[in-house]
Simulated assay, not measured.
Amino acid sequence: MAKVDIKMPDDFLEKLAHLASDEDGMAERVLNAGAEVVEARVRSNLAGVIGRGTKVESRSTGQLLSALGTSGVKLDRQGNHNVKVGFAESRRDGDSNAKIANILEYGRHGQPAKPFLKPAKSASKSAAIEAMKRKLEEEVQSK
């Protein structure tokens, strides 16, 4: 039976060990970099559709736009890191921000759809991936 002995440079092994020790923090920073890109695109699209194309003057209070944000990075059951861009749920009138966003996105009887989430997802996907790649490379270089 053949035997192979591979020797790695010590500095490379130390760098790998250091990267592994900060895996959770690095994943959080990389995901947040991508989430920033997506949130900015959603915010831009949402601001563009609020009050547009209405038959009566808009009654927008600005609550939906101000409720838009990014969650913290969380670990799911499979050990994957996740971050979500969405809406906080507190409104002064008792309605749900998710409901209002859903009505804007898909419309309802007498109110045409004004999609802002799906176009933001499509438009920001590659930019978010690139931002996360840059952040990951930056993290690896700094270690």
Rank of each mutant, 00 (worst) to 15 (best):
F87I: 08
S66M: 09
S66C: 04
H81K: 13
R77D: 15
V49R: 08
K55C: 02
G72E: 15
G48W: 01
R59E: 14
G62W: 04
S58M: 03
V49Q: 06
N80G: 01
G72K: 15
L68Q: 02
V42D: 02
A88R: 15
G86C: 02
R43F: 06
R43C: 04
G79T: 07
N45E: 13
I50W: 05
L75Y: 07
E57H: 09
S60G: 06
R59H: 13
Q63L: 01
R52N: 06
G62P: 05
D76P: 09
G69P: 04
L64Q: 08
V85Q: 08
S44D: 15
G69F: 09
V49Y: 08
Q63N: 12
D76L: 12
L65T: 09
S58W: 01
Q63P: 00
L46G: 04
V56Y: 11
A88V: 00
F87S: 08
D76N: 15
G51P: 11
L75D: 11
L64G: 07
V85R: 06
S66W: 01
V85E: 12
F87Q: 10
S71Y: 01
V73R: 06
T61M: 13
E89K: 11
V49S: 05
L64D: 02
D76K: 08
V42I: 14
R77S: 10
G62F: 03
T54N: 10
V56S: 15
R41T: 13
L65K: 11
H81G: 04
N45I: 07
G48F: 01
L68Y: 05
V85D: 08
G79P: 09
V73K: 04
L75N: 07
R43H: 12
V73S: 01
A47C: 01
V73Y: 00
G51W: 12
L64T: 06
D76M: 10
N80P: 02
L68N: 09
G53F: 02
N80F: 06
E89W: 07
R41A: 07
S66E: 15
E89A: 11
G62R: 07
R41H: 07
G51F: 12
G51T: 03
Q78D: 13
N80W: 08
K74W: 03
D76G: 10
L64H: 02
N82T: 10
L68H: 00
A40I: 01
I50Q: 10
R41F: 00
Q78P: 00
S66F: 09
G48D: 14
E57P: 10
L64S: 03
L65Q: 12
S44T: 11
N45R: 12
S60H: 03
G79S: 06
V85C: 08
E57R: 15
R77F: 01
L64W: 05
Q63D: 14
K84H: 07
S66P: 00
